[in-house]
Every structure is written in structure tokens, then in C-alpha cells.
Design a protein around this nucleic acid. Structure first.
Lengths: 350, 350
DNA sequence: TTGTATGCGTTATCAG
DNA sequence: CTGATAACGCATACAA
């Protein structure tokens, strides 16, 4: 049978009001009453009915999600729709979930942080995209006593309640293990990707480190590994020139590893030039998937980005609403996707 | 703002009782009232508050899960714990979830079906392990108007509300694509597994068909594919003898495909005989995982068995409680697992 | 410091 | 056929 607040009130010979004050530690409760209640709780074992609680609740919680604009960076479409899913699932609860988008530039990020703080949220889900700005943001959050959960990029120094995302180093190892299996004896590997500036996000570096260290650790002969850096502000044709030139000069390169989500850009160039290579990239953007179906991209590493958005909000909700404290690091699976299992990935069952 | 039942009652100028009767189609509602209510619902847009509903509900729903005993067949440990997870998550709701186990023999299955029927469930989650018995069971369910969801094995003829599990043919293709990538030019493939009788479950055949048809469709040269059948009632040493003999006679076999969850049995034999082959198997039993960590098994195909159990119960709950009708076929992902991404699979985030 | 009463949105009963 | 009203378990304002 279910133990209610009245049950333990009766047992302890006090009123429900007193029990409530004891449970929520609000108001004053005499020592004598406290003891009687504790005794009753121990004997009967009280578990609050979270549904009834929500119904009676006056306070409305607020969760703000600070994400890169999905219209700017395609990757963020999926986490965004995960957040939407959480929103609709929590619609019966006394919680509002607000989304604040930023374009992936520092000023925009700072502005969004400001907006999030002003929103008077109880909890914030955010992507710590810029190091210093994120640390500063986190400081403000701690001052105002606002809980925060990081998604996709891990910045432990900011001391969030939790992080949810992939382990980028391990993901790099997984990518390497696939290349290792696919390669022939004297094949060389090229690591290349289109990025913003010389200095890129730490998790891209971790994906590369994991990749190269896989071969360092491996007992078999280590393949040659080349690097080629392409800048996003350069022209597409410039990329094409650089890449095709490189591949002509290094014909033993048979495998290309793209440690960010823009493998489709590389695939597009190779496709146009009829250059047949094995490509391993990240993330299930529609563009990437299309090239995989055509056989141009061979493997994609998935990180269940939709679930990341969904889980982050749910974690925050549970932390706020049921006072659960989440695991501090929640690593997502490192999914290996090819042409054949892609159709069944993330989102069949919504 | 949230539209409640009273709001639409007021708007339609009737009482909440009438609105309730209209919504739940219970009792009689006059045509005039019906029209006014429909009008109000259309204008205001009513969504029931599921939490308040649960609080007020008198009826307690009952869901029965009919599963193979996890102590008999290791595979079922994970679906079982998925069911447990659903149970704890739904503990606040007016629903009880009962588990009925059977050993994988016909009489046991029949007995369990009987027990499930007698339990007077509103919905049943089951594994249609035996064809005729399952059809007969389904007939009884339809007669008694009990909803049913199939898990793991698909038997559409029994007309369940939904199926949740993996597409075995596609899973076979995925396994083949991995073997294809790993193989060298003249490598041959062996398909072998330890099974109960000559006649095995349809989904194992589908896994084999998907596998072989992959190579039929492929443009590159088709590898030799051998078959070796091992019976579960034979001795372990008998299996060892058969398998090692076979491999000695066919030294060009470098890749072994095990289309059921007992790859660890094959791995154990090869390990003992120091025979180095590429092994691809199914399902993340602890025994399989252990051999994968050692490098004896190279790939496992995962089917998120825990989520299968969890989702099946949740689907049934939503069907019963919120009258949602689920998609009839819910295919799970076909997960590619190796030594490197295994650690992050299913269950980090509970 | 403590107890009582009212309301949250829905269901279900019972008298009209 | 319809309307009024008492639950459900909890939170909270207010009275004692």
C-alpha cells in the first residue's frame, strides 16, 4: 500500500502541516514533533507522490537551454529537436523550457549568456563553446545559485552539475579501429577537416589524439599519417585545389579521417574528382548520410545528438523537481554507422 | 494558458460531467451538447492533464510481461532489466506490471500463456517464441480484447498492437558488410552456431539470409561461404572436434559469422586451440563482451535489448493510459560494437 | 510552533 | 441524459 503524508501524520500524532514542514525543512518544527515524525517515516517508509506534488505546486520551474543556432550549424538540429521532445513530454509539469540560440561567435555567445541569466532560470543547459566566456558565465551562475548542465563539450573547470556528451578521445580510437580494419598494408592515412581558425575546439583535438594514439599503441606496423588543414573562410574551390593536389602528391593515402561533422564537404570534393578513398567522419547530418548512401563516405561516428538534448533537459528536470543529483559525467555511446545500419538509427522510435 | 475541462465546459455551457462523458465516450450525451462541446474543444484546444488524471483514477491498469527466464537464457537478462526500469519509472502511476517467465520449451511457454491470461491483464508484452502456440495465444487475447505487444521476435500473423525489436535480415546485412571490409581477397567465410534443433527460429534464418544476400548483391567477387551446424545437446568437446577439424580442412576460412548470441562458445573453442580468426556475433552477453575485450571476438551486433524491454512496457502503458496507438513496427538500431566502443554502450545513462 | 481548510485537474458517483 | 460534488495526495495560506 502507498504511504501518504496523512498516514505518517496520523502515526506520529501530529498534523499534515507539521509533517510537510518537516519534509521540506520550512518553518519551525519542535524537537519532539521532529522525532515522532522521523520514527513514523522510518517505520512506514514514505515516498512522495511526484504527480500529486506537481498538481498542487504553485511554483513554476524554468529551464533555459543555451544552444548554437541550428540554422547556422547543421549539427545542432538534432540536439534541438531532442530538447523539443523533452518540452512536449514535460508539458504536464509545472516547468517551462526556454531556448536561447547563439551564432557560433564570441559576441553572440556572450549576449546569449546574458539573456539566459536575465531569464531568471532555475537551471541552465548550455554548450561551453568558448573557454573564457564560459568560465565567466559559470561564475555568474554559481553566484546566483543556478544549476547548470553542459552538453556536447565538456568543461569541467566550470563545475557544472553534470556533463552529457561523447568522450572525444575514445571516439577517435573507435574511428581509428575502423580505419585499421579497412586498410591494406601500405595504405597511408590523411587527417583533414574544414575548421574556423588555426585554433579549434579541444574536442576536435581529442578526436585526433585518440586516433593517432590508437596506432601508437597498436602492435602492428603503424601507417603513415598526414595532416592537411583547410580554413572555412577559404573558397570551396581553394579547398578542392589543396586537397586534390595533396592526394596526387601522396597517392599512398587511401583513407581519410575527418574529425568534425563536415565530412560531406570533403566527400563532395572527392566525388567530383572521382577519387576513390575510404572516408570516416562524424555525425549524422543529412548531407553526411547522403554521401554515405552513395558509398562515398564509408563510416560515420554517431553520438546520438538528439538524445543528448533530450537527456540534458530531463536530467535538469529531475535535478530540480525531484532533487535527484545526476552523475557528473554521462558519456553517450560511440555509434558506428555505415550504409547498412543507418536507416535504423536514432529516431525510428520517438 | 492551460485549457482545462472546466474551461471547455463553461464555454460550451454544460457541466464538467457532460464534457467528461463526451471525452471518454461513456454514458449518453445529447446531440446538442456534443456539438457545443466539439465547438469549444476546437476553439480552445483541450489536452488532458495526465498527472491529474492519474491522481483521480480509480482503476488500476495491469500489464503482464511474458519473457523467457533470464536464468535459463542469458540473453534475456537485459530485456528483463529494461522491464524493471520501466516498473520503477511508472511506480507513481496506477499501473501494476507483472512478469511471467518461461523456460524455452513449448510446455513451459503454454503454461505461461495460460497464467498471463488468467492474470486479467489489460495489456500483455510477450515473445512469440513458438509459432502455433503463439497464434493460439493471440487468438485468446483478441477474444478477451487484451492488447498485446511483441518483443524481439516478430509474428505479424498474430496481429499484435505493435512489434519492437531488430530487423534480423538487415542485421545480417550489417554483419556481412563488416566481414566484407575485414576480409582479404581469397578469405572464405564460415557460418556456424550452436542451436537447439535442426529447426531453429525464423529470425536466425533471416540473419543468415541477410548475410548471404549481401554478397549476392555485391559487385565484388563473392567469397566462399561454408556452413557448419552444431547441436546444443552435443558435448562441448564434440563441438570442439567438429569445428577444429573443419577449420583444418578449410584453412582458407578466416572469418566466422555466428548468427545467434552464442559466439562466446565458438570463441572459447578457437581460443583454446590458438586459432586466430575474425569472429562476428550477436548480442552483448557478458561472455561475449569478455571475449571481445580479449580480441577473440571482433564485432558484436547489438540490439539494445534493455531498451527493448523498457520501450515495450512504455509503449503499452501509453497505449492503455493515454490511448496513444503505437507504430505497428518499431525497429531498434543495429549497433556495431567492437572492443573500443563497447564501454560506452547501453546503460551508462540510466 | 501547530492544525485546518482550500485548491490543483480529473474521475466517478449519485441524485435529479 | 445532465449537473453537482466528493475524492485522489500534496502544497500552502491562514487561523489558532
Amino acid at each position: 500500500m502507498k504511504i501518504r503524508i496523512v498516514d505518517i501524520a496520523k502515526k506520529a500524532d501530529v498534523s499534515v502541516g507539521t509533517v510537510d514542514r518537516y519534509i521540506h525543512k520550512r518553518g519551525k518544527v519542535s524537537k519532539k514533533a521532529t522525532e515522532k515524525i522521523q520514527q513514523a517515516v522510518k517505520e512506514l517508509g514514505y515516498e512522495p507522490d511526484i504527480l500529486a506534488r506537481n498538481l498542487a505546486l504553485k511554483k513554476e520551474f524554468k529551464i533555459v537551454c543555451l544552444l548554437p543556432d541550428p540554422n547556422e550549424t547543421k549539427y545542432w538540429e538534432r540536439p534541438d529537436s531532442g530538447v523539443d521532445k523533452a518540452i512536449s513530454e514535460l508539458s504536464s509539469f509545472k516547468v517551462t523550457i526556454e531556448k536561447v540560440f547563439f551564432t557560433p561567435r564570441l559576441e553572440s555567445f556572450n549576449k546569449a549568456c546574458q539573456k539566459a541569466i536575465e531569464a531568471q532560470a532555475d537551471g541552465i543547459v548550455y554548450v561551453p563553446m568558448f573557454l573564457d566566456a564560459s568560465l565567466h558565465f559559470a561564475e555568474q551562475l554559481h553566484q546566483k545559485n543556478i544549476a547548470s548542465i553542459q552538453i556536447n563539450i565538456h568543461l569541467p573547470e566550470a563545475q557544472p552539475l553534470a556533463f552529457i556528451g561523447q568522450n572525444p578521445f575514445a571516439a577517435g580510437e573507435v574511428a581509428a579501429s575502423l580505419c585499421d580494419m579497412a586498410r591494406h598494408e601500405n595504405d597511408a592515412i590523411l587527417i583533414t577537416y574544414i575548421s574556423k581558425k588555426e585554433q579549434e575546439y579541444a574536442h576536435h583535438h581529442a578526436r585526433i589524439d585518440g586516433f593517432t594514439q590508437y596506432f601508437d599503441k597498436s602492435s602492428s606496423a603503424k601507417p603513415e599519417i598526414h595532416h592537411l588543414s583547410l580554413k572555412i573562410d577559404e573558397d570551396e574551390s581553394q579547398h578542392e585545389l589543396l586537397l586534390t593536389q595533396f592526394l596526387e602528391q601522396q597517392p599512398q593515402v587511401k583513407i581519410i579521417y575527418v574529425p568534425n561533422s563536415r565530412a560531406y564537404r570533403i566527400a563532395s570534393i572527392l566525388d567530383k574528382n572521382q577519387t576513390n578513398k575510404i572516408i570516416v567522419g562524424f555525425d549524422t547530418l543529412n548531407e553526411n548520410i547522403a554521401y554515405m548512401q552513395q558509398g562515398i563516405i564509408d563510416f560515420l561516428i554517431g553520438q546520438q545528438s538528439m538524445s543528448q538534448g533530450y537527456n540534458a533537459v530531463m536530467l535538469m528536470f529531475n535535478a530540480l523537481f525531484r532533487k535527484e543529483d545526476p552523475a557528473s559525467t554521462n558519456y553517450m555511446p560511440i555509434d558506428i554507422l555505415n550504409k547498412f545500419n543507418m536507416d535504423f538509427y536514432e529516431g525510428v522510435l520517438k
